[in-house]
Nucleic acid binder design. Structure first.
Lengths: 123, 123
DNA sequence: TTAACATATGAATAGATGTTCATATAATAA
DNA sequence: TTATTATATGAACATCTATTCATATGTTAA
């Protein structure tokens, strides 16, 4: 049997709020620091150049100018984005002569991408 | 038995590239339009205010001023972000008197959030 | 060594984005 | 009706971000 709680109150001169809901939700949420990191992580995926790089590397390792050619963009732009991906530990590098090959460095990346694809492909 | 292909070539006065890798990868990638939508979708998750709203609504529906109170932010800022989430079909609304209650409107959202959490919690 | 190639990076710039402020709309209570 | 409460929204502003340009670093070949 569920109890019904009247969750409504007037606080000072402020707006009506539902303090029980608010406090209950606050207790259930991940802490601020974690939510901030989560947003920062999604920010990395929230750019089409980086998404294209990531999806390309899901297939096979590629060097910088391969990616520039593939995405039809300048080498510098690609290189700047790769630095971000490297800093975020999403890609790793391997040198072979003058070329530097990039590949994915995280098993969760494909999970995230696939969850995102499932999301945009529905409805 | 795998064939080894020498995937290296000089194109005009341009850089060295690995044309076989590039063409193979191009063929395997989702189309441009889909990758653009994917980036747009992740962009929504790439802001800590919106992530906090989404995580709050994962627990239970809340009205605008509940969210403002919970996140310690102005009503207008919350309302603007809710509009974005509404436009992106991530939340739905229900009116009850003067309050408008927001809740999640997509079964994939929790998948994406959980994939993201798994990602930031490792290493 | 010098030349050519591959990548990285700092600075500048243009465009996108989040919050605030003021105000509008909508529902309810008096 | 008018006043109050809840939400929505346009405009302004400051901040952030992605690309370009110029150049530096590092590797290989001649």
């Amino acid at each position: 049997m569920e109890k019904k709680i009247k969750d409504e109150v007037i606080i000072c001169d402020k707006q009506h709020v539902h303090p029980y809901s608010v406090e209950e939700t606050r207790a259930e949420m991940p802490d601020e620091e974690e939510l901030f990191s989560l947003a920062e992580a999604f920010k990395i995926f929230g750019d089409s150049t980086r998404i294209r790089i990531i999806c390309a590397l899901m297939h096979k390792e590629l060097c910088v100018c391969d990616l520039a050619e593939l995405l039809n963009m300048g080498q510098s732009a690609i290189s700047h984005q790769l630095r971000l991906l490297r800093t975020s530990r999403l890609v790793k590098t391997r040198r072979e002569g003058k070329s530097i090959f990039y590949s994915l460095d995280d098993e969760h990346i494909e999970l995230i991408i696939n969850a995102g694809l499932a999301h945009i492909r529905e409805e």
